[in-house]
Write a protein that binds this DNA or RNA. Structure first.
Lengths: 335, 335
DNA sequence: TTGTAAGCGTTATCAG
DNA sequence: CTGATAACGCTTACAA
């Protein structure tokens, strides 16, 4: 017997010890491949991350760390795939038995990888929620509720005109779930509180970001608007705007600079609430009131749910993590 | 024969076609485990990333993307490990043949994982350079040269008093290679140009970051200093400082804010040159003159070199990527 | 409680 | 050029 039956069947303490010694003496190490072959389990999870630049990177990394750490606790290793292989990547690792299950991120409302998952029957877990999550396991922050929370906070402080500075335009065009849900939540919140709302997508990327003060034109990508342009536009169209909700973490620094440059003090003249990891929120001056983006937790929960599913747990589920808003220095009551 | 000998030996067009049909008909997919067992090659690379918070995350992520993308070109998959397994992680994947080689990041001058690599004889590639790279393959940005470049640029613009705002103190305590080399390069550059230099570690993390303007004390971690404290200290001790070199990308936003708050204009009163990814440098207002951190390239080069080694390429080597400085809006001549 | 042997799906070797 | 057949190292079912 290949010894290390690690509890698979009753063993006498005698042989158990005998085996232990041999395993030491021979410096024995089970061969992962052989094991996978015989047991038809690879003990590997595949994590698929986007390689696009318009999704905020630190969040992805935190998710990955969370996934790897938690997976190890269950004895699994994690294979990292980028999304440029598309649905084929999933097929590849699944049908070659390189991985036992896949974890997807950056889920679109109508994600083309979902069909592949349904067909191939791989165990899968989505970090994010598609339009139709039937028969799928998903984890995500409750973005709609998060959005609502932001508006509510601002409304309670007396703000009547609010602008939502969202993700890059491409994100909405791709119908990425979290972006759409946030927007929906914010709109609902605005309607409920009766506050005036505008939504402006905003590029987080380089060239379009901010060129106020530097020589040069604003916005390099045709039709897209960076932080500078977005902000200017907002105050031009709605001069009475006093509340800002920001989801695109990449523009936060520019935004703060631009506000100061244009003579608007935070939070005296304008309040900002961000939807981002706490780390980011705490890093600015003043620190930002924010709804936290619990990236690591998303990763760990993903693995936990996936383990349940692989154990054969019955019902598929969409687990939404309730958002929580932390008041910091960037929001204040309006006079 | 398991058919798909993919060119391993001469085949007649006849059988080749016969095989192709069967492979289609049976929806055949080679089993990775079986293949690994028989060929004793897993076609997997292990990438080990730190999970510590004081190393800048976006850089890690970019490296990972670079590694995965390039690895796929060679038909390899990438296993993601965190460094909390330490040397054991390496041993585990190597001795179980889960991976054919490992790529290490966050290399310390005296990295304890190096001993493990030398002993176990795994093919390895370090992204970073330890004190003694003999017998090892390494890739890294030439940080010493990068540091020198920063000083030189500032010196040429006429700055005589320069401050280097470095990584968090813990990074130096751990003797992380890149941090030490940068410092060395900067010191050498300062000596060569005869400019006055001070070096100040700076926490990039949350609480210690900046509390100017917000109620509360500065610096939560005993003995460490955040952006606010660091900056204040610099101008208190050397009021004539006009040049800043920043390596800790996480503090850049706070730094810019703090400078503005304290009434110092960039680049009129103080020039800043950063050592960070272009994306970050372009995102601020004004955009930062910087020496780029070619993270993706580091990842791709790592894989390329590793492939050479696995092919059996002879000599070990340390490949240093020459740094390049891009002038943007944050540096100007001092009258 | 323990030994034995039959696969698991490839690759590699050795005759034809 | 091609078809068998023995490894590869482990799991697991089946006897003992």
């Amino acid at each position: 017997m290949s010894y290390v039956l690690s509890g698979k069947r009753p063993l006498s303490e005698a042989t158990r010890e005998r085996v232990r010694r041999s395993i030491e003496a021979l410096n024995y190490h089970p061969h992962a491949g052989a094991r996978a072959l015989a047991s038809s389990k690879s003990d590997v999870l595949a994590l698929i991350v986007p390689l696009r630049g318009d999704t905020y990177v630190p969040v992805m990394m935190e998710i990955a760390i969370g996934v790897v750490t938690k997976a190890r606790e269950f004895g699994y290793d994690v294979l990292l795939l980028t999304n440029d292989e598309g649905p084929d990547g999933i097929r590849r690792v699944a049908s070659s038995s390189r991985a036992d299950a896949v974890i997807l991120t950056d889920i679109g409302m109508e994600d083309d990888r979902i069909a592949t998952i349904r067909q191939s029957g791989v165990d899968a877990l989505l970090i994010g929620v598609p339009a139709d999550p039937a028969g799928l396991d998903c984890v995500d922050l409750d973005f709609a509720e998060a959005g609502r929370l932001c508006v509510e906070h601002l409304a309670q402080l007396g703000h009547r005109a609010i602008a939502f500075i969202g993700e890059a335009e491409g994100v909405y065009r791709r119908h990425v779930g979290f972006a759409e849900r946030t927007l929906r939540g914010i709109r609902a919140g605005a309607a409920a509180s009766g506050v005036d709302l505008v939504h402006r997508p905003c590029e987080g990327s380089s060239q379009a970001a901010g060129t106020v003060g530097a020589a040069g034109a604003v916005g390099t990508l045709a039709g897209t608007v960076g932080a500078a342009g977005t902000l200017a536009g907002i105050f031009r169209e709605r001069p009475r705007t006093t509340g800002l909700i920001v989801q695109n973490e990449a523009v936060i620094p520019s935004l703060m600079s631009l506000l100061r440059t244009s003579g608007r003090a935070v939070p005296e003249d304008v309040s900002i609430v961000a939807l981002c990891p706490d780390k980011i929120a705490e890093q600015t001056v003043p620190p930002l009131t924010s709804v936290t983006m619990p990236a690591t937790e998303l990763g760990t929960r993903a693995v936990e749910l996936l383990m349940l599913r692989m154990i054969g747990n019955g019902a598929h589920q969409v687990r939404l993590i309730p958002p929580s808003l932390t008041v910091r220095g960037s929001t204040a009551a309006i006079d």
